[in-house]
Amino acid sequence: MTFHFEILGTWGPFILEGLWVVLGLSLVSAFIGVAIGLVCAFLKKKKIIGTFLSFYIDFFRGTPVFVQLYFVYFGLPALMGLAVDKWWVSIIVFGLNSGAYLAEIMRAGIEGIDKGQIEAAKALGVMQKDIIKDIILPQAIRSILPAIINEFIALTKETSVVSVLGINDLMKRYSFVVAKTYSPFEPLLMIMVTYYILNKILSFIGSMIERKLKYD
């Protein structure tokens, strides 16, 4: 058993450049996801649009993101005979996917607010907009924050499948390097550690915000 960590000296920076892909894709998808999630959380109770949204959420949570990606990149374009951009496909699929998960998380957070507190605020003469801003949102955000951080962590990890579309993320760069060096162990270990540190930072930021919102 011999290690060849020296190849990381040559190829390490090349692989790490894929981190920008992970960060960019995760960030944009998370942003889209939060927007979709919020809208769904508030509209899901509405009759017609609610049924549609429930179906969307169910569908995206019920199928693997890997298959969704293939379906939108290969399946749909073949059927309709048009070319699609792999970046757009990735952003749309991951945005819709995390939106579906976040919608459920946010809905639970908003519904979880004690109705009594809302009544108490009303009884004091507080306006609806202040009730949402000062009573509902601070408590909802606090209760769903761990779940949201979880979802973001899952998202950054899942973006690693975009390598199958030929997007130059960490894993795509890995297959390039392994073809040159025939050493899979060292680059893979590096990629694992990279993802691990990335998500460690993410959960650290999460717990920092959590501590800031803490009152018990």
């Binding site: 507190q117 108490a120 507080v126 601070p138």
Partner: peptide, 26 residues
């Protein structure tokens, strides 16, 4: 409602505010 205070069975205090802010908020 400003003219009519209300006290509830389950208190309904704002959990994320301390006692003085609960009173001061409105």
């Amino acid at each position: 409602r400003e003219k009519m205070g209300m006290v509830f069975q389950n208190f309904n205090l704002f959990d994320h505010m301390d006692a003085k802010k609960n009173v001061a908020y409105a």
